[in-house]
Write a protein that binds this DNA or RNA. Sequence first.
DNA 1: ACCTCACATCAAAAACTTTTGATATGTTTC
DNA 2: GAAACATATCAAAAGTTTTTGATGTGAGGT
Lengths: 102, 102
Amino acid sequence: MPTSYEEKARVFKAFCDPNRLRILELLRGGEKCACVLLEQSDLGQSGLSYHMKILTETGIVIGRPEGKWTHYSISEEGRAYAIALLKELTRPVEAREENSCC
Amino acid sequence: MPTSYEEKARVFKAFCDPNRLRILELLRGGEKCACVLLEQSDLGQSGLSYHMKILTETGIVIGRPEGKWTHYSISEEGRAYAIALLKELTRPVEAREENSCC
DNA sequence: ACCTCACATCAAAAACTTTTGATATGTTTC
DNA sequence: GAAACATATCAAAAGTTTTTGATGTGAGGT
């Protein structure tokens, strides 16, 4: 688990942009080449590249370069990690004393 | 499940800011009054109010007004919903054909 | 009724993210 | 090696979110 709130927040940045959710939906069907994502999203080439960078840096998506092309897919590990982190961040903990100031 | 990518993205906005993660951590220990959150976060009064609005609008946190005060807590329903949505957005689907253009 | 307190709202500024078009890098094909 | 292509990077502009301080609103106490 990352230690700082900034690091944890970064993981969820992957999911808070509609273009990235569209890309993830395309990738749910299996590995896709950037050219397919470009065709099937509303993004231009450099815009796609920008979003793919965010998705891969957060570990949700894996990029597999192969010659001229890059193939992208959802990382099962990254997925499991984000789900575990979300659970962790919202899981109730045993309160030692109910903090009722008011 | 919300229908548009914008609506889905909004849910994860709750988790992509360090101040909001700090607030969620405080709320994991149980319901807290805004005054406690104010004390234990780096926010000013209006900043806290801004973030609490985002957290309650996404359904992750519930605000319970009681006279002058508002008590906040993590919504077990909102939590379950966000987790389910994250799973859904990243779950592999049966690919009818592997889209291998390149 | 008036004062005080908790919280919400507002508007402007600051900070950050995304888009866009241009240019760079690296790979394949001739 | 030159051309053609895929992707990355860059810098500026556009858009969005967050912070800040001031003011509004509604509850409770006197």
